[in-house]
Design a protein around this nucleic acid. Structure first.
Lengths: 150, 150
DNA sequence: CGCTATTGAGTTGTGCGCAATTGACTTGCG
DNA sequence: CGCAAGTCAATTGCGCACAACTCAATAGCG
């Protein structure tokens, strides 16, 4: 594992390639998720919200936003669509009238069963080993943290 | 570098974490690029198109789409905005009237100078070493290739 | 040559992502 | 208590991404 040249020009090129790869990989994942989630009637961001609710139970909009790094401008219409699909229910918090609590409906709970095989399909589609996935996750987390500081 | 547990449940969890990290990292990059490109009046996808033109010269819409993995539904309005900003010019190809050639204007060429410091700023913002960037690029490329096959 | 299939751009409609703003509610300070 | 500052959700406006479609131009086959 040598680290030889790294000329100035190559560095800039490497940066472009990393950013572009990230952009492309993100969209490629989106495409595969689109397929896997089609029969559930969910988009990938909607699936992320459902994962939060399946794992943590009722959660205010702000809590979902913090977990997924999304703001109300994205979540409000998304949650309206999930509500229209009968998967979640929205209610004002009694102790803080500014807050809106998102809660799964029965249909929302039941959808979890049908969503169980999705991660395994994705895992297989990546073509990476477990070690590589761990490395990837670690690098991506560090990049995100670093970028969010600046 | 051991690879111990990897239980069934942990695998599924790992998948979620990788997909989410990818999504989050992609948006984090977008945010930093937004800052870096603001004074140039470009968005990140527009910057990608300009990079293609700066590097390869005049290119048909289809060629840009293949290099960036984008279709006409995304590129047509984006190129219209670049044209409105005076950075590119569009002309029908003489030998194939279906094809539209995108060519940089003088202003488009000149913008290259002002864009030069951008990659270095991004490189610094990631907080990764050159080796880590190479690993990341490699993993992301492989994932994208694998996903695009399925 | 003429007809069909394909290709390349563009348009439309839906949904995500983000900045900026609004408006209701809560907190905190004098 | 009363007012200013802060918080939370929602809305608006713009741009990207993608599917589905339209339309013109070309290629290919009989």
């Amino acid at each position: 594992m040598t680290t030889p040249p790294a000329s100035d020009a190559e560095l800039l090129r490497l940066d472009h390639q990393v950013c572009f790869s990230l952009h492309a990989a993100s969209r490629a994942f989106g495409g595969v998720y689109r397929e896997a989630l089609k029969e559930l009637g969910l988009t990938y961001p909607q699936y992320l919200v459902m994962l939060v609710l399946w794992e943590h139970g009722p959660e205010p909009v702000k809590g979902i936003g913090e977990r997924l790094r999304l703001d109300s401008g994205t979540l409000s219409p998304l949650l309206k669509r999930l509500e229209a699909a009968g998967l979640v229910h929205r209610e004002r918090s009694p102790e803080d009238e500014r807050s809106v609590i998102i809660r799964l409906t029965g249909a929302g709970e039941e959808l979890r069963e049908r969503a169980l095989p999705v991660p395994r399909r994705m895992l297989a589609a990546t073509g990476l080993t477990v070690d590589e996935l761990r490395t990837l996750r670690s690098l991506l987390s560090r990049v995100t943290s670093a970028l969010d500081e600046g």
